[in-house]
Computed example of a mutant assay.
Amino acid sequence: MESFENKAKLSQLTTKQNALNLQIENLSAQRSLIEKTIKTAEENYTSEKQSFDNWVQTRKTLGSPDKDQEVIDRAKRLDEIHKIKDAWKVKLEAKQTEIETVSKQNIALQKLVNDEKTEAENKFDSAVKHYDLKVFLIRLFIVAPILALGIFFFIRYRRHKFWPLYFGFTLFAFYAFFFGLVPYLPSYGGYIRYTVGIIVSGGLGYYAIKTIGKYIEDKQAELQVSTEERSKKVQMEVAEKALENHYCPSCGKDFIIKKWALPIKGQEIELQYVTTDFCRYCGLELFSNCKKCENKNFAHLPFCSSCGTKTSKD
């Protein structure tokens, strides 16, 4: 921040301040000396008055003190001491006024110094904001194409045979955005950060709603196709997972109607399940009998689990 200060002007103001401070110190020292003088004068006056009172009391017993010239002389001396004390008090008030005047000048100079430093701080803050904006724009120039390419890959190639590579680049793009760009967003009271958050949240929300809506539409359209056509589209991995988790590979509904426990060999319990050959929600064939051994198999797996014969699906 010192590089934004007007060093010549601050040096001039500081020199004046130092001179005023030195003047205030000298005036304060003079005031202290006057205060000590006044204190000494007050002590002298008190001592002289006490002596005078005692002397007058003594003279009353001996003669007429009112006509005594010595009494008059001592009274005049006492008045002179009092006048000296008053004169020093006048000097003290004048010195105090002078100190206050110089102090006001010093305060005015300090205000000028503060104003100059405030102006330097404002220039410094403006330069810092400009620098931060420059850093942000440079990072934006680097990160924006990466982010745009990552979003493009995610939308266009998420079903590609090399989708893990595209998805990995998309994750890297989001990492570059949130860790390489967002921390350098200019604040401006937080409005830019809030705006970016709203835009990102709105974009992700719109994509999520659109994806879910498309999924529901695809499922509804899929249910309009005949069970034979849907059965042909079921992949082996999906069929294995559907059988393991007992749900229809087309609509995702549980194909177990009910289950109960039967006692076997005393305390041991065996669970019995009841299933259907066709899905009771979408009508897809789930289980079929082997043409060779009549063993019941999951209709979407390629071979019979009993004799190994290919199923009718293949």
Rank of each mutant, 00 (worst) to 15 (best):
K89T: 04
D125V: 12
I216K: 06
L171N: 02
L10D: 07
Y194G: 08
N21R: 15
K291P: 11
K210C: 00
L284K: 04
L171K: 02
T227V: 10
V135D: 07
V113S: 11
E222Y: 05
S126C: 13
F172H: 06
I192H: 03
N6G: 07
K232Q: 15
K89Y: 00
S64I: 04
Q272D: 08
T170D: 07
Y166H: 09
V234D: 05
A120R: 07
E237N: 09
L112A: 13
F179M: 07
V135C: 02
K89Q: 06
K265E: 01
P263N: 09
S312M: 02
Y215D: 05
A221Q: 11
I34A: 04
Y194T: 12
K36I: 03
K76Y: 07
W55Y: 08
L243W: 04
K219A: 05
V143P: 02
E70A: 10
A176Y: 01
D314S: 03
I212S: 00
F179I: 06
A41Y: 02
R159E: 12
W163S: 14
Y273H: 04
T37Q: 07
V113W: 08
F136P: 01
Y131R: 12
Q69W: 01
S250M: 04
L109R: 14
T195L: 14
L171F: 08
P183R: 06
E217G: 00
V71C: 12
F278N: 06
K117H: 15
Y131L: 13
C293K: 07
R139A: 10
K123I: 11
N26R: 14
E35K: 03
N6H: 08
H130W: 08
K219I: 07
P65F: 09
G197L: 03
Y247V: 09
R31E: 11
S11K: 14
L204Y: 04
L204P: 00
F178L: 10
E121H: 13
H160W: 14
L165H: 09
Y247N: 08
L165D: 07
K253S: 10
I155E: 07
L13Y: 13
E228Y: 09
S103L: 14
F141N: 10
E228H: 10
F152M: 11
F298A: 09
T170R: 01
A94H: 11
